[in-house]
Design a protein around this nucleic acid. Structure first.
Lengths: 346, 346
DNA sequence: CTGAAAGCGCTTACAG
DNA sequence: CTGAAAGCGCTTACAG
């Protein structure tokens, strides 16, 4: 029954059903204003004629685009690290939006935060999206200012609350994660650990640094730390630097799975055995962590569920609710075979 | 100057400029029908008032949503393999759409081809998007039928032409790629190679199989072949199976970077050295290939440029042009340190 | 409960 | 070159 020639409107349905267009509208939207009998007939006629609401007309009429805007920043480094994070996040978001017939309006840019800001501004002014999801925020990011100027526009940041102060934010509990890692290593008996951290321009790096140092201090442990990109090569390089010292740490914590894998290679290349000679922990969990030899102990979080949670918050904001700083689900430390008690120093 | 209170329309601009709304519309859209003087004044007034076109009104009026619909299939396997492919592709698409002020309408689903098909149908009927980009098509995919029923709807498939017969398709030259790999190994002196191929349900797997076998036959080479998922573990497992035979191949070609990395691990675990004892080739190139020890020879293609090309084709289809089967840019074989002449069989 | 009418913001023939 | 008017497809007060 390929009944879709030219587009069919509620006027057509109204005529066919012998009622007014308003009756059709009420019936179709489940609003009162029509008798059940009329409603049933309208529904049936609409169905049989293959009527479907025109999204543009609907959008114009109730000034709702039914879509959430997301702009992804493309970095040259980080490759699939941020790629899969963003994808997973979008997957979660998509899942909840689907239920309420919302879509994602996506844009990707290599122009950094400034370009992203321009896109968001354009979306605000054109009414292209009902709400904004903002990720990858940096220090002094113009997007912070943009949304401060438009407190009426629903926008949720996936960032640290220290970065977005006051703006609606879904934040990760990186401090708790950092402490959990330190405690795990402490329980195994380590007293000297090291951190292969991410770039210092990210607030979450500083938060992890700070929480790690604090927990170490409290437990009487020593912690060395070096910063680099989220890349295999940096992980390997920084690990080698640590290993240069004869009294090096007995455990190394990496801020990403890529750098952890790189570190694993570097350690192995030096003839050391994990976890006998040295323990390794990856901050992000991934397939690479699971299939490494040995499988890596990692801080795990369900990124898809973050997108999910973000979606629900955004929908509530669209409905006029006020959202402040909301925590993500806590990290889980998945203990695998890359961590063990330190070698007795005999 | 936070001049954005309530939304400002062309009627406002018209009043302020002392002209009719049609004059404003003509002026703003660079159409004739207004004097240059009027146009200049309108432009200035619109600018100063901070006018921006309302996307819904525009969409309704010229029945163009200015967006391209993409639905991504989420598989449990393949993880970032397909993740980064899709991301790169979207990045390319986004880049060309940006120039013409188009957006991507994105949806992700775990429901497979059937769910994707439902989404596309919904988009068609609601006028939500102006064109569709379809990827991850399988045998008997309902999306093929859907777009055959709607030849008027602009839709481009990223697939093999054998799969989409007749539908607008941007296809990869996998046969040429396969032949290039075989020729490379032949030139190095290999006479017995093996293929760790992808799942047989994909047309491109069969095409690669077929072209590989054909080229081998022509060059008097032997080729063994096993199929598995695009995963490290499968790559390792299938590699080990090959290595069980004492007269095993002297070179192995993998259909994905993940399986190649897995294979590399398996080979190394058996105490064999790459490329001295055995040569390895990865079909997809990636950071993982580049940073492997040794770096892997790989078939490379610029995925972002595929998205770019797809975008241009879609825009032309929206403009009414007919598009048939268009080839992607050819693969490039990047020779690194994982391939060499076979060990003399003494 | 139901119909006629105005409105969402823009575009585009159609007369002056 | 310019203005008044109708239309895109839907929603929603407002009278009956």
């Amino acid at each position: 029954m390929g009944a879709s020639k030219s587009t069919i409107t509620i006027a057509d349905v109204a005529k066919a059903a012998g009622v007014s267009t308003s009756a059709v509208s009420y019936a179709l939207n489940g609003k009162k204003g029509v008798s059940e009998k009329t409603r049933a007939r309208v529904l049936e006629v609409a169905e049989s004629m293959g009527w479907r609401p025109n999204s543009a007309a609907k959008a114009l009429s109730d000034s709702r685009s039914r879509s959430i805007g997301v702009v992804l920043l493309l970095h040259d480094t980080e490759e699939f690290a941020s790629g899969s994070y963003a994808m997973e996040c979008l997957a979660g978001l998509s899942r909840v939006l689907e239920e309420v017939d919302y879509s994602i309006t996506l844009r990707m840019t290599t122009g950094g935060a400034a370009a992203a800001c321009r896109i968001h501004r354009d979306w605000i002014e054109s009414g292209r999206v009902d709400a904004h999801l903002v990720l990858g925020v940096e220090f002094g990011d113009p997007r912070l200012e943009l949304f401060r100027e438009h407190p009426d526009v629903p926008a949720l940041f996936l960032a640290q609350q220290q970065t977005t102060k006051g703006l609606p934010t879904l934040y990760s509990q990186d401090d708790e994660g950092a402490r959990a890692v330190v405690r795990h290593l402490h329980e195994l008996g380590h007293t000297h650990i090291a951190r292969v951290a991410g770039p210092e321009q990210y607030m979450h790096t500083l938060i992890r640094d700070s929480a790690t140092m604090d927990e170490c201090a409290r437990l009487g442990m020593r912690c060395d730390s070096l910063h680099g990109e989220y890349m295999r090569d940096d992980g390997a390089r920084l690990t080698s630097m640590f290993l240069n010292f004869s009294d090096h740490a007995t455990a190394i914590v990496y801020d990403s799975d890529s750098s952890a894998i790189g570190g694993l290679h570097a350690v192995t290349a030096q003839g050391l055995v994990v976890p006998d000679d040295i323990s390794l922990v990856s901050w992000d969990d991934s397939a690479a962590c699971r299939s490494a030899k040995p499988p890596l102990t990692a801080l795990h979080r369900d990124v898809r569920s973050i997108g999910d949670k973000a979606g629900r918050l955004l929908l509530r904001m669209i409905d006029g609710e006020t959202v402040g700083a909301v925590p993500e689900d806590p990290y889980t430390l998945v203990v695998r075979d890359s961590t063990a008690a330190p070698k007795p120093t005999d």
